[in-house]
Design a protein around this nucleic acid. Structure first.
Lengths: 195, 195
DNA sequence: CCTCTTCTGGACCTTTCGGTCCATATAGGC
DNA sequence: GCCTATATGGACCGAAAGGTCCAGAAGAGG
């Protein structure tokens, strides 16, 4: 009943995500979103609510994709230590490969809005809690496989790797050399306690 | 000659910094800056130029203070390894102690503006290049003092510590527990290669 | 004490912001 | 082929943005 939507919601969310990613939340205007999606205000408001609600939906889908990506890397068939290496290396390479060094949308959004928008903070918290859990599990696997010191605290190592990951993300935005970013990731792993 | 300034420039820069720190660049309006400083537009524009120029001056003074603070910690009389510990611990404690978890102004500004404002990126780059240099020197000292493996690459270790520092800064903004932040800093140091 | 130069605060301007509203278009259900 | 319900895009709104400008205030120098 009624007239059907004339656009694909996921596709619109992708275009909107690009805008927020390129300019940040406050600096992207409704006009930017309209031109990026080709939609009018009526459609945007009807389908997603106001600017803030639309932004949160972008963050939700982004978080889901991020967690899925990390999970894929950290639960592959290779040895656990190798999976951890792959994660850090692909993060460093990925951040460096982006010509505009945009970094991670969730990180940028958190940095911009954390002191004014609890809903953004809550999404950041669940995202990185999720990544932390995946890392800890993978560290535990590496201990079971005999590649890391079984006496070490897996939570401590997982959190350390999470911090290094975020550090690489930020330093990429300061235009640090790609080789230096990679060096940091490899250094973090090479100094984990061995059995 | 002429009427003298009716305010202290450094004091005004401090008030302005607080505003930018609390709300970010795009979200603080000229009105915010006027009420925060008690000055009119004429005075603000006359003394500091437009909003963007004023912001850059805030970043400059902030960078100087940051580098001075880090230098003070990393060149103290204690053993070098202990100085490194002090830096990471005071960073973790400092970020956690802020009730609003505002993080570092330079980091927040970089995350918000790096893809639109090369002048901000350049300030971030010099800031963290400076911190990196200080860290590398301190690592080298620790090697000379026999507390770290003299065969390790000091640049690699310094950069790793820089990344951990930035990681802690970010995770603080996601409301990670203060104890977890501290744990990360200590873990990073405890797993550095010993002689 | 008068003048000259700079500072000061607010009036004012243009533009753009996010958001609402509505006349029209359009497909599904009967 | 209606009728109904939703989608659509743009007109429209008040508020707020950043920036300019100016009349008056106020020391410093002679």
């Amino acid at each position: 009943m009624g007239r059907p939507r004339n656009f694909d919601e996921n596709q619109v969310l992708e275009s909107v995500r690009e805008q927020f990613w390129n300019r940040g939340y406050a600096a992207t205007s409704l006009q930017d979103l309209m031109t990026a999606t080709g939609l009018g205000k009526g459609s945007l408001y009807g389908a997603f609510g106001d600017k803030h609600q639309l932004f949160l939906q972008v963050l939700d889908s982004y978080r889901d994709e991020q967690l899925t990506g990390v999970r894929q890397i950290l639960t592959g068939p290779d040895p656990a230590l190798q999976r951890l290496t792959l994660l850090l290396e692909s993060a460093a390479n990925g951040f460096a490969a982006d010509a505009h060094r945009r970094g991670c949308l969730m990180v940028n959004s958190t940095s911009e809005l954390h002191s004014q928008d609890p809903e953004v903070v809550s999404r950041a918290r669940t995202t990185y809690q999720g990544v932390e859990d995946l890392l800890i599990t993978c560290v535990r696997d590496a201990q079971l496989e005999g590649d890391l010191d079984p006496g070490a605290d897996p939570q401590e190592l997982g959190r350390l790797l999470l911090a290094v990951l975020q550090g690489i993300e930020f330093l990429a935005k300061t235009n640090m050399d790609a080789s230096a970013l990679l060096q940091i990731g490899r250094a973090a792993l090479s100094h984990l306690p061995r059995p």
